[in-house]
């Protein structure tokens, strides 16, 4: 079964290249004919997705639909069994320098202070010490954490930790930011505050983002476009433009006339697929 699907999977490298060339270079993502298996069962089957430069895309779906796996493949952290992903025209085979990831459990090094956590990827990329310090401090200022650089992650609340995670991602000035359920581990209030901050940040510094979430509300609030994924195998059920302009706030999105019908539409999609829902997270 699995091998039959491999054979039929498109392996067309040219399509990737041509799509990247026709679109705007720098910060676009082209996934074509993606397959991924865990054991014998396909987690992702025949998935095509194009994310334009500076677009904020949210991926929603039930547990086990492969949305996190899709993100990890874009990040170069999970292998691609078949198909290709190209970011800014560059094929993903390992983590790319132009891509930053925000992790669900923050991914901060407990033995490094906040400042050194943010400066690490800059130093790793060969940025000079002074320049790295300046950019790390700028990034911390961006997320409103300029005065806690000397603290260790253990001293921070979940919301603050994820602000540091965001600052670390933005510090390298990436073309694409990938966020893997970044607000799933914080409480509901903090979550809304962080959404608000992210909206404010993105209205000032637009860039390509793929944001994976369980929450339909969160997806509509943040995204220009919502990708609805279904499980068994993971595939795209729907691809919905969010007709709500920017700048936005959490409240203004909730009040918008298209919010309720949009939510209804996505919810119907997910309910339809969840009867076949998987158990893998």
């Amino acid at each position: 079964m699995a091998s039959v699907e491999t054979a039929s999977a498109p392996r067309d490298g040219h399509r990737v290249a041509s799509a990247a060339e026709s679109g705007q270079r720098g910060g676009d993502i082209v996934c074509s004919g993606l397959y991924k298996w865990f054991g014998d069962s396909p987690v992702i089957a025949s998935l095509d997705l194009y994310v334009a430069r500076n677009q904020f895309v949210c991926v929603v779906g039930p547990s086990g639909c492969g949305k996190t796996t899709l993100l990890r493949m874009m990040a170069g952290l999970a292998s691609i069994d078949s198909g290709t992903i190209a970011i800014s025209g560059q094929r993903v085979t390992e983590p790319l320098a132009s891509v930053a990831v925000v992790f669900q459990h923050y991914g901060l090094f407990p033995w490094k202070t906040v400042f050194h956590n943010v400066a690490l990827p800059l130093r790793a990329a060969g940025v000079t010490k002074g320049e790295a310090a300046r950019r790390a401090n700028d990034a911390l200022k961006l997320v409103g954490l300029n005065d806690i650089g000397n603290q260790y992650p253990a001293q921070l609340s979940g919301g603050m930790k994820q602000r540091v995670g965001l600052a670390r991602a933005l510090a390298i000035q990436p073309e694409v930011v990938l966020l893997d359920e970044p607000f799933a581990a914080v409480d509901a209030q903090t979550r809304e505050i962080l959404q608000e901050e992210l909206l404010a940040l993105w209205s000032r510094y637009q860039q390509t983002a793929v944001f994976v979430t369980h929450s339909i509300d969160e997806a509509i609030t943040l995204a220009d476009r919502v990708i609805v994924m279904g499980a068994k195998p993971g595939r795209i059920l729907d691809d919905i433009e969010v007709p709500i302009g920017r700048p936005r706030s959490v409240a203004s999105v909730r009040r918008h006339e298209s919010y309720a019908p949009l939510r209804e539409q996505i919810w119907e999609q997910l309910r339809g697929s969840s009867t076949a829902g998987g158990e893998r997270g």
């Binding site: 990040a75 952290l77 983590p95 320098a97 990831v101 459990h105 033995w111 490094k112 130093r123 790793a124």
Partner: peptide
């Protein structure tokens, strides 16, 4: 394991991996 993944994502080379992750983590 997540920190090891983060190190890959941050594109740390082997030396940086030892200096910033493995050695301090083992202290």
């Amino acid at each position: 394991a997540e920190l090891m993944e983060v190190s890959r994502s941050l594109r740390l080379n082997r030396r940086q991996m030892w200096v910033h992750v493995l050695l301090p983590g083992a202290v």
